[in-house]
Structure formats: C-alpha cells, structure tokens
Design a protein around this nucleic acid. Sequence first.
DNA 1: GTCTATACGAAGATAGAC
DNA 2: GTCTATCTTCGTATAGAC
Lengths: 186, 186
Amino acid sequence: MASDARERMVRSAAYLFRERGFSGTAFSDVIAHSGAPRGSIYHHFPGGKLELAEAAVRYTGDFLAAGVRAATRDDDPVAAVRAFVGWWRRVLVKSDFQAGCPIVAVTVESQLAEAAADAFRRWQDALAAGLVAAGATPVRAARLATLVVAAVEGATLLCRAGRCLDPLDDVIAELEDLIGIACDAS
Amino acid sequence: MASDARERMVRSAAYLFRERGFSGTAFSDVIAHSGAPRGSIYHHFPGGKLELAEAAVRYTGDFLAAGVRAATRDDDPVAAVRAFVGWWRRVLVKSDFQAGCPIVAVTVESQLAEAAADAFRRWQDALAAGLVAAGATPVRAARLATLVVAAVEGATLLCRAGRCLDPLDDVIAELEDLIGIACDAS
DNA sequence: GTCTATACGAAGATAGAC
DNA sequence: GTCTATCTTCGTATAGAC
C-alpha cells in the first residue's frame, strides 16, 4: 500500500526525533528504522525533511490528544492527567532516559512553530475539557491545562537530564493537589 | 588576555544555542559572534564542540542561579520566582520568540545530561532556599522548586511555539498562588 | 512508485607554519 | 596562541533509469 510507507516513515521520524533530535536524525535513519523504500522519500514528502517533521509533529499531537480524551473520566479530574504523565514516564523508562518529546526537539531545532503550537494546543484543549467536566470553571481549567502541559514537558526534560523519574513524580504530586482544589472549589 | 577569548566564546555559544540549537550552531558562527580568534578554538576547547557546549551549559546554570539568589527576599516568597520567570520573558520578547533555553537545546540534541542536570539542580536549590526562608518546609520547598523550573522551562517552549507570552503568564499565576499557600501553611 | 548514483554544500577536526 | 589550508565525513536533494 502506498500510504502505508508514508505512515511508517512518519511514525519512525517521531520515534527517532525523541532520542536524536531533528538534526541528529538523517533520512537514512528513518528509512532504516521504518523499512520504507529508499526511493520514495521525496515522492511522499516533496517538501523534504521539514515536511516529514511537520507530519511527525502532527502525528504525535493527534496521538496524545486522543489518549487524553480516551482517559477522561467525569468523576475523576486527574485521570486524564495521569494518562498524559504516564505516557511520558513510559517513554523515559523504556529508553533508559535517552528519549523525550519529539515536538520539543522540533521546536528547538527547526522553525516549525506553527505545527508545534497546534499540537500543544490540542493537548491543552483535551485536558481542559476533562477539568471542566470534573467541575472546574472554563477559565481556570484552561490555565491549569497550560500548567500541566508546560510542567510535564519541563519535567520530562529534567528527568532526561538527571536520569531519574523524581522530577515527574514531584510535579504530578503538586499538580494533583492543585487540580483537586480547583475542581472542588466550584 | 587569553581567557577573555574563551569567555567570549562560551557566552556566544550560549546565546546562539538559544536560537539555533546545538547542531544548528557552527563553530564559525561562534567565532563570528564573539569576535574571538579563529585559530584558538581547539586550543581553548581540546574536546571540540561538546566541550564548548558543556562550558556554555555551566555558564548559563551559574548565571541564572546567581540571579535567583540575588533576587531572593525572606519576606516575599515569589520575588525570586518572578526574577527567574522575568529572565525567560525577556529572552522571548527580545528575540521575538525565536530563542529559548540553551540548556534545553543541548539536552535534546547532545548527550550532555550531566552538565544539564547540574544546572537544573542549581536553579532548584536556589529557588528552594528562598522558599524555605519564606516559610515553606524543606521537603515542600524542594518539590515546589522542581515544579517551578519544570513549568517555566515548559512554558517557555509553549511561548516560543505559539509566539506569545500567555503560557508563561498562566503558569506564573498558578505558581504564585500555590507558593503563597505553601509558605503560609507552616 | 521505487531504484541507484551523484551532485552539492556544510561543518568538525587536524596539520603545520608563524 | 593564533593563523590558513585542508582532510574527511556526512546528509540533503536531484537526476534519470526502470
């Protein structure tokens, strides 16, 4: 199938960006990892590496936003947040703290701010919707969702640098308290 | 002076990493920006680019930790946090949202986890000391300091992607509330 | 659509003179 | 300590056949 090779390349790119970053990941790496045919890169991605990176950012954004929505429970305001954090925790542990967020890598290394902002926004929206359903006001929910995304992305960086999960544990503990208070208050 | 050229190169590297990242910054860029002599790179940095990056990370870590300590006020628990956030805010605005944290760039792109972890830890220690002085318990202060560093680093990324200061504003609002409660509680 | 071969440029690192 | 010149590696992108 034609679009199958493209899909595999996008997923491999997202995977490889996590460990090696954008500049550190060559097309040949993506080919080798995905098993996609060599000659079809510029057929599927006429815009070159940037177009591949943009697709990888979009893929990661969609994937995690869907995960957050699926984990949302009206009676448990922190369930979705735990799912979100759990995903990053697994990325860190599975990679022995070598991997992080592919979107962060792309944001830092290339000029794909728009795609990155879209992905971050989808995560915030999904998290905020869950907080509203659990009782928070819309304004407060949006602010808390921003804090969750920022703190978890930052904590993932700290975990990667320090090669331990403590920062993520510390952050989630504080966030859960804060969210409990915000959802009870209204 | 001999060490003057070295110092200039380190500062320029830290500056350039913020916008272009580690791989995106060539030695020639550092030379051009710092005005340092071409032929002395490998004299000052025998370990090559990685040694330069490590020095840049250390420099940034020291610089900001000192800034946090200088802004610490025993009677105002959020003064140091505001100084910390204010620094990133200026970086974002001055660069028109093109620049971020050089240590994040190095963490994502190279394998200098140790130096990055040191820098993050110094920031956390400086912030935690201020929170303890303002009345928080040591354990809680450490946890909050981790949250502050993670959330601010993450928010800086979100600001850069979205090209606006809203994420940083949202994050600092929540953090100030949380810190006020933690310091009053004891 | 997929292949191979290659052009082209960039950048890190080294050698050796001054 | 600082210079210039160069080596070498690598990776994007293109050209053109199948």
